[in-house]
Write a protein that binds this DNA or RNA. Sequence first.
DNA 1: ATAATTAAGGATAAATTTGTCCTTAATTAT
DNA 2: ATAATTAAGGACAAATTTATCCTTAATTAT
Lengths: 147, 147
Amino acid sequence: MFSKATEYALRATIYIAQKSSDKNKPGMAEIAKAIDSPQSFTAKILQLLTKNNKIVSSVRGPNGGFFLTDKAKKLPVRSILEAMGEDEVLEKCVLGLKQCSEAKPCPMHTNYKLIKGQLIDLFETKSIQSLADEFENGGAKLNNRIK
Amino acid sequence: MFSKATEYALRATIYIAQKSSDKNKPGMAEIAKAIDSPQSFTAKILQLLTKNNKIVSSVRGPNGGFFLTDKAKKLPVRSILEAMGEDEVLEKCVLGLKQCSEAKPCPMHTNYKLIKGQLIDLFETKSIQSLADEFENGGAKLNNRIK
DNA sequence: ATAATTAAGGATAAATTTGTCCTTAATTAT
DNA sequence: ATAATTAAGGACAAATTTATCCTTAATTAT
Ligand code: FES
Ligand code: FES
């Protein structure tokens, strides 16, 4: 559904939201390990999410790392997709027509639009914070390594 | 959601299902034009769908082209995804965990699984034939060029 | 001030996806 | 039989995505 980059972005952001505090900000090594992603690549992705302080914030130097402001935690998950330039996935025609519309619907449209609506609603309603709460609190995981 | 290749595969198959008959089998040029796809690339994709006569059938030579057997028309849309090796998209974890499971759910799982179920149901229930019926009959389109 | 730590950023490489072109093989019409 | 038509298939090219590595800049601890 999403690119690897966006999957890493989602997992990393949720991890940071849950783990960061004033005292403790996870660094790249910790994050990549926790979400089971390639470290250098994930670093690039966090750079994107940090640019203009869109979603993720960071501090350099010893005890530095990544964190989310309270404001950022309240953002809908969709804002991560937007920062990754991949939120059009939610709006796309499932058969790849240039527009998904009632005016010129594809043969799947009538059935798919119901699902699409729920998908959009999910990503717009769920906040980053609420996903962070699911993580560990609700027993949700951000990797599924055996150990 | 799907790769371009799979989008072309879906559109092309639906088009062929609707347009082909004993007397008339659309060729590559016609298909690519109708579904607004790059011809040579689409040809490769139809080769995949034709291999082992999985979904699409073909005849070479004058008045040759592509068609679907009645049996093929009754296949679920998901079988096209399978032929393209891309049906795992339906089963995947939305955050990219290696497994989507109740045992080790990601933070989106509880909400997403409801949508996922509908998505799987849609692709397993809808037949290629029923989509072909939507096309032109039901006013559905396989491209949205202005003209 | 200095050294240590950590993210930012640039350059580059590998892998995959998307796409084109040309030749070959099969089939049909004449 | 021959020529025309059309899909099959191989080789290759372009574009995009994924990934690594190394240097630079900022910050902190000493
Ligand atoms: S037009 Fe294809 S899903 Fe809406
Ligand atoms: S585990 Fe992520 S969607 Fe099921």
